[in-house]
Write a protein that binds this DNA or RNA. Sequence first.
DNA 1: CCGAATCCTGTTTGATACTG
DNA 2: CAGTATCAAACAGGATTCGG
Lengths: 123, 123
Amino acid sequence: MTKMKNNTVCQYKLIASRDALAVIQGKWRIPIIISLTYGNKRFGDIQKDIQDISPKMLSQELKTLEEYKIISRKLYDSMPVMVEYSLTPLGLSLHKLLDELLNWGVHFRDEMVGKKKGGKTKN
Amino acid sequence: MTKMKNNTVCQYKLIASRDALAVIQGKWRIPIIISLTYGNKRFGDIQKDIQDISPKMLSQELKTLEEYKIISRKLYDSMPVMVEYSLTPLGLSLHKLLDELLNWGVHFRDEMVGKKKGGKTKN
DNA sequence: CCGAATCCTGTTTGATACTG
DNA sequence: CAGTATCAAACAGGATTCGG
């Protein structure tokens, strides 16, 4: 990549970022993945972590993440039924990215508190 | 943080991730920031990098990113008018996060090409 | 307990044309 | 060149109800 022109590199990166964004985009996917980094969990457990998610969204996003091979779903045929979700190796490979995201989130908040003015509060 | 319980840490991380996501969420913000890492650019230059963005979305997202202090806007009062966008220090501080995002995007694509099956193509 | 199915709403995004 | 304005489409998200 060292010999490529800036514009070519930029295009390459734009594509890579889109691939990544397609997977983790949305309000709930990152939170769900974070919740699952603390061990395998059941539907209700995740709901407890992310209190403002509706069952519909949780169900829907779990399904999508499963299609992307980020998480896996294990059904125990007990009574009542029990389902356990966990991160796949691909899901685990997000860990460094998540770390940076969290670091930056904290950094951003510090900056905003320091300056206090302007910026979007967005709820 | 070493002494905190898993659940507390999880909640803490969920909040940090939301702070970060509020800023970089959306289809266009990351691409715009990536485009600007290759030097200060004008409106039309960014449009050339991101070919499928509409002027409306570009304008709107630039405005939002400016409010978040991620980028800054400089108006040169020439004829015709010229505007230059650049990353602020806060915007530059996203660089490690972006790197990880790109790395993961490439990794993800490799995985998907290897397996080939399932997964969402999404378009 | 763990969801699926349905219906409904508001926000996001987009296409296109237009302006200083 | 650097955007606005307008209108339409798409999608995310919520409320509620139902089933194994």
